[in-house]
Design a protein around this nucleic acid. Structure first.
Length: 842
RNA sequence: GCGAGGAUGGCGGAAUUGGUAGACGCGCUGGACUUAGGAUCCAGUGGCCUAGCCGUGCGGGUUCAAGUCCCGCUCCUCGCACCA
């Protein structure tokens, strides 16, 4: 890309110079505190417009602009529509990249502290944000690595600990060997660490969890929320609710083996059982002759990464453990196997296997030659029961199933299926099971073996065990004087002053928890804190929370569909149950922007070298052009490839707007035969049409078409421009409306032209214009005309015309007139809005 | 495999309840102004065998009328995936 700005000798005194205009207005807006919001102002309705706060990576890239500039336009639009709009911004400042940078530095013998790095980056990004011309209210800024912020993470943790929502449990965890930390399930993508890309190992460790599963059912409801279907589906699948039954089998040795099944109706077809390799009963139940084989299998499974396991989706593996269990419904003796297709983390880690009714069990049975017994006869099957196909998961009639024989199985889930209902009742009757709901969702593991995060306020006392830190001792400060380990281990472990403490209970010898919290804890409630960012006495201001939340619109990337957005919903419900807020849901309306791809159609990344730097673009074209171009590129929720050429068109458009308002008319006066009334009428129509369209588009986040409408208006004004002197106030009115419509999208140039036109005040403090319906384009609509049921012609009819007028026009159509003149009109009707029917006799 | 979304000119994309397909922009072509044009302005720009015909991934259907509705496919993107 080479220069496109006209060389300086061509610049006239009043030529559009984005750099000057933008610097001037950013300065003035700052001086006038134009965007500082009075949270107590109740003269206007509130509107909380939230956009996801960024991680302080150090440089704003074009993706930030794509996310935030349109959001800013939508927020400005709301503000001009009479709302008191809160549009805050902050930084998600804890996290691995800053710490990893410190570790890298340590490896080279340098000393870089994550805090120093983070605050430097925040400062740089704030300056870059200012260049965007966004109406962020920085006075409400939240930085999550500030003790004044993370203190409240700790406070919430203590409250949740009191209520049993935060608990410590030894469990298998996802261990990232590169980042040297445990990850949440949500952070493991295809068996690899979300950040590091390293293969995840499974380890058994004591970890802190939040009991998000307590809220599983509530999280499944999106009632009253205007969220994209896509996100709702993703969250619903993630929570993964399954209705079924728990059934207790008993081993011959007398141990209860509990299983969960969604198909209790097929219990009589259970011909073997399968335990997960990690199942606690495996060791005990295995018979001596099978011990070696079983141990080898368990050993192999434990070393397998998640990815290895998933890669083996085709071929089933497993081992018979030598033991048998009794099927509670028919007392049958069935073999017990272990196999890694049964997961310890779901249900009970054990299943009853019904090869006839489950594809996986069927595959397993075939491979190991286990019995397959039909229990549902398909409706259209005519073969004898013994010859039924060996896998059927659909509806039919129950067979080989004792008391269920002959019952209808409609293939539905839960009690809606008579066969399932009967099976559950039967289980209850014999005391071997009952209805149960199981979720895929697991509790949120929040422990991280890292330094740069919120310290978990827990102390382990040799005598008293786990002790929560006292509230008055908060915040538990993250120490600054730490040495970063080249190995990646958390420096907290090697910091005696931090780790060795007195027990808050007995005062005896104790040590502090050295794990820190997942950074998703920070972002699970940050929007509440914008309302009182520096309140030292309490986490949130109840009065302001009541007035301002829930957030009216939340915008951000889809990549947070299940991580952040699910945690935020969970946290809100917890805060509600703690009596701190009164709302059930944090974000009423959610909108996701798409992703801007590099010119090579790949996701932008430093390693690919396809990153577009917005700073250079701003220098070349100005922020207004960059903003408007990102909005114009296509539907916002779609994203798309970056295209250098397109930006020129938007740049030219802003130049033309500038010329319309500022530049002196160089052309000769209009020719005397120009019909001024027509010109004025068309101008007015163009203006009001634009108001209507831009209003609808901005309200619906359709930025691309809003700009297209503005271009159409500016083109129309370009045609009328030659008559501007003669048009007088009509011209000036058109300019006024154009600038108002432009203000949310290109705030600087709109403000400058507003001032130059002599309009009072700031364009951003004006009310949004409304349109005059009667001034809109007199549209016509095409209608078909039929005579005695046959279409004879098409006519153009003005929108909103009276029926009689429509009939007159239709009658005048030559092709129609031919048929009408012959006979007599008996009935005339206008149907379907777009069809004129004549019925003629004679 | 399951779920969600999509397919429209050379390109990004527009098209209320079915009603002149291709708004707006890019690119391209021609012209004007120019020492020059990669600046600006004007005109044109879906295709073709151009009295007209054909055109919204493919094949059917409903309708006076289909990008839009119905049936059957193909391909693409994203999400989930041995969840019992």
């Amino acid at each position: 890309m080479t220069q496109t700005i006209p060389s300086s000798d061509a610049v006239q005194a009043d030529r559009y110079s984005p750099g000057e205009v933008e610097a001037k207005w950013q300065e003035r807006w700052r001086e006038r505190r134009l965007y500082e919001v009075d949270l107590h102002d109740d003269s206007r309705p509130k509107f909380y417009f939230l956009t996801m706060y960024p991680y302080p990576s150090g440089d704003l890239h074009v993706g930030h602009w794509f996310a935030e500039a349109p959001a800013d336009a939508a927020a400005r639009f709301k503000r001009m529509n009479g709302y008191n709009v809160l549009f805050p911004m902050g930084f998600d400042a804890f996290g691995l990249p800053a710490e990893n940078a410190a570790i890298r530095a340590a490896r080279q013998g340098e000393d870089v502290h994550p805090a120093t790095l983070t605050y430097q980056r925040i400062e740089r990004m704030e300056r870059q944000y200012d260049q965007m011309g966004a109406m962020f209210d920085w006075s409400k800024k939240v930085i999550t690595c500030d003790p004044e912020y993370y203190k409240w993470n700790q406070w919430f943790f203590l409250k949740m600990y009191e209520r049993g929502i935060a608990y410590r449990k030894e469990s298998f965890v996802n261990w990232d060997p590169v980042d040297q930390t445990v990850l949440a399930n949500e952070q493991v993508i295809d068996g690899r660490g979300e950040r590091s890309g390293a293969l995840i190992e499974r380890r058994l460790m004591p970890q802190w969890h939040f009991k998000i599963t307590d809220y599983a059912d509530e999280l499944l409801s999106f009632e009253g929320l205007d969220w994209p279907e896509r996100i709702r589906v993703m969250q619903t699948n993630w929570i993964g609710r399954s209705e079924g039954a728990k059934v207790v089998f008993r081993s011959e040795q007398g141990d209860d083996i509990e299983v969960f099944t969604t198909r209790p109706d097929t219990l009589w077809g259970a011909t073997f059982m399968v335990l997960a390799p990690e199942h606690p009963l495996v060791e005990k139940l295995t018979t001596p002759d099978r011990r070696d084989a079983v141990r080898a299998y368990v050993e192999r499974a434990s070393h397998m990464t998640e990815l290895d396991r998933q890669a083996e989706t085709r071929e089933k593996t497993g081992e018979f453990i030598g033991a048998h269990a009794l099927n509670p419904v028919n007392g049958e003796r069935i073999p017990i196997w272990i196999a890694d297709y049964v997961l310890m983390g779901y249900g009970t880690g054990a299943i009853m296997a019904v090869p006839y009714g489950d594809e996986r069990d069927h595959e397993f049975a075939q491979k190991f030659h286990l019995e397959i017994r039909p229990v549902v006869r398909p409706d259209d099957s005519r073969v004898p029961d013994e010859e039924l196909k060996d896998l059927w998961t659909g509806p039919g009639t129950m067979i080989n199933s004792g008391p269920l024989n002959g019952l209808r199985n409609n293939g539905e889930k839960g009690r809606a299926n008579p066969a399932i209902a009967a099976a559950i009742d039967h289980l209850k009757g014999i005391g071997a099971g009952e209805e149960q709901v199981t979720y895929r969702l697991r509790d949120w593991l929040i422990s991280r073996q890292r330094y740069w995060g919120t310290p978990i306020p827990i102390v382990y006392c040799d005598d008293c065990g786990i002790q929560p830190e006292k509230e008055e001792n908060l915040p538990v400060l993250l120490p600054d004087d730490v040495a970063f380990m080249p190995t990646g281990e958390s420096p907290l472990k090697h910091h005696p002053a931090f780790a060795e403490v007195a027990c808050p209970n007995c005062g005896g010898k104790a040590h502090r928890e050295t794990d820190t919290m997942d950074t998703f804890v920070d972002s699970a409630w940050y929007w509440f804190r914008y309302l009182s960012p520096h309140d030292d006495a309490r986490p949130l201001d109840p009065e302001l929370v009541k007035r301002w939340t829930p957030v009216d619109v939340y915008t951000g990337g889809v990549e947070h569909a299940i991580l952040h957005l699910l945690y935020a919903r969970f946290f809100t419900k917890v805060l509600r149950d703690l009596g701190l807020v009164e709302i059930d849901e944090p974000f009423l309306k959610l909108r996701n922007q798409g992703i801007i791809l590099g010119a090579d159609n790949e996701k932008m990344s430093k390693s690919r070298g396809n990153v577009v730097n917005p700073d250079e673009l701003v220098t070349q074209y100005g922020a207004d052009t960059v903003r408007a171009f990102l909005m114009f590129i296509g539907p916002w929720d779609q994203g798309g490839p970056w295209n250098y050429q397109g930006i020129e068109g938007v740049y030219r458009f802003l130049h033309r707007v500038w010329a319309l308002v500022v530049e002196q008319e160089a052309k000769p006066e209009p020719s005397p035969d120009a019909d001024l009334d027509t010109v004025a009428g068309e101008l007015k129509r163009a203006v009001h049409n634009a108001i209507k369209e831009v209003t609808e588009d901005l309200g619906a986040f359709r930025f691309n078409t809003a700009i297209a409408e503005l271009m159409t208006l500016s083109n129309a004004m370009g045609k009328a421009r030659a008559h501007r002197a003669a048009l007088g106030p009509a011209w000036s009115e058109a300019v006024r409306e154009l600038l108002l419509l432009l203000a949310p999208i290109a705030p600087h140039i709109a403000e400058e032209l507003w001032e130059r036109s002599g309009f009072p005040g700031s364009v951003h403090l004006q009310s949004w214009p409304s349109y005059d319906e009667s001034a809109l384009v007199a549209e016509t609509v095409q209608m078909a005309v039929q005579v005695n049921g046959k279409v004879r012609g098409q006519v153009q009819v003005p929108v909103g015309a009276e029926d009689s007028q429509v009939l007159d026009i239709a009658r005048a159509e030559p092709n129609v007139a031919r048929y009408l003149s012959e006979g007599q009109v008996v009935r005339e009707i206008v149907v379907k809005g777009r069809m004129v029917s004549f019925v003629v006799k004679g």
